[in-house]
Design a protein around this nucleic acid. Structure first.
Lengths: 218, 218
DNA sequence: CCAGATCGAATTGTATACGAAATCGTTGAC
DNA sequence: GTCAACGATTTCGTATACAATTCGATCTGG
């Protein structure tokens, strides 16, 4: 239970939230969490503070921490920003990527294709993650890459279910092909707009899904 | 000394760093800070953690916190991202701003003009801040507004000296006019590109300045 | 005289203890 | 019967105490 010393507590909490162990809006009691992870309240508080800064939990003074509940509109806003950042990464990558960046991209896309052909959604999920990370790296802007990675992590829980939609794997793969080609031929604007569309589509689809869920639970 | 209870400790530290009380790369001893602010180590650690998450300080395990030193290249990267976010705000503002947003923008710009005519750099600094905030608000994307505000804060210390450059006030004001006009007539692309240029110019100028400083201290 | 190791001091990370604020339950009055 | 006010309990925020780790200095051996 208390195992995995040396593992970062924040990631564990983040994971639990992402995996739905703690539902949105649920209160996060420090004492309970401390007992759950076998540590004292102090590191718990530090982890919560970090998660609050990244927006995953909301921290109200003297009123405790709750899992940030992102409504459909908020989610759309986040995807809108994510799309812009990804588009920027793509635009810069098309201009600045060197041969090693391009080979990393091609490799990641190859893994995506393999997973898609095997209909391995989990495999595609991770390969997709590597593909996008490769784009961030290729932008040759370390700060941008950090920001994009952060946003990616924040939207992770909302993306997870996404790929199970019928036919989404093949569509996503085809979009990747177009993006990769645009970057390879140095077409900055094409890479940017294709990537923005790639992300926005996910956002819209997910907006529908969340709106649906909200309807059910409301 | 210990006064101003209820004031947020993080802001105080942030301010001290921005004002150069703590130089870049300097070690931040928790005990000293605790004594300095008249509190215990616990709230100091929390503040440092938050500042670390926003990137203002670097937190190395068992080795203490140091003021993050942002080199010229890193600074350029940050301005590049800031420009993109501001451009996005402008693009959305041009599409979505309602009459109250527009009047807020006009008011802020009026204050900028007044400060510029009085050659009041400090006044312009704050008016300029309000102008940009008004744009964030007008984007009608709350999450984007938060992100832009965060970036604005992170770059704040590097902007402060900026406006003292001869003629920069008038140039900045003229750029604001163009941006405001573009938003008012709903020209999304113009608003976006003008704002991006507005920020990038600051970044480039400041890149030069920092490079110069680095040369001196190196 | 220099290199390496060991010991010591200082600082970070964690646990515990205490004080303050908010929530919830109860009680009383209308 | 309902509402409001008061009190007790719970939980957050801060301070203090302790453990773990790192950095520096001294001492010893070559």
């Amino acid at each position: 239970m208390s195992g995995k010393r040396g593992f970062v507590l924040r990631d564990a909490l983040e994971n639990d939230i992402a995996m739905g162990v703690f539902k949105a809006g649920e209160r996060l009691d420090e004492a309970s969490l401390a007992q759950r992870f076998g540590v004292s309240r102090t590191p718990i508080r530090e982890a919560l503070l970090q998660l609050a800064t990244t927006g995953l939990v909301e921290l109200r003074p003297h009123r405790g921490a709750v899992v940030a509940q992102v409504g459909p509109s908020r989610l759309m806003e986040m995807f809108e920003v994510m799309a812009e950042l990804e588009g920027m990464c793509g635009r810069l990558a098309a201009r600045r990527a060197d041969s090693s960046d391009l080979s990393a991209l091609a490799t990641a896309q190859g893994e995506c294709r393999a997973a898609a052909e095997a209909n391995d959604t989990d495999g595609y999920y991770y390969a997709n993650e590597r593909f996008h990370h490769a784009i961030y790296q290729a932008s040759r802007n370390g700060f941008l890459a950090e920001q994009a990675t952060l946003m990616h992590r924040r939207l992770k829980p909302y993306r997870r279910l996404q790929l199970r939609v019928r036919g989404r794997l093949q569509t996503s793969l085809a979009e990747h092909d177009g993006i990769l080609a645009a970057i390879e031929r140095g077409d900055a604007e094409a890479a940017s707009s294709l990537l923005k569309a790639h992300i926005i589509i996910q956002g819209e689809r997910f907006g529908d899904l969340v709106a649906n869920l909200a309807e059910h639970s409301a």
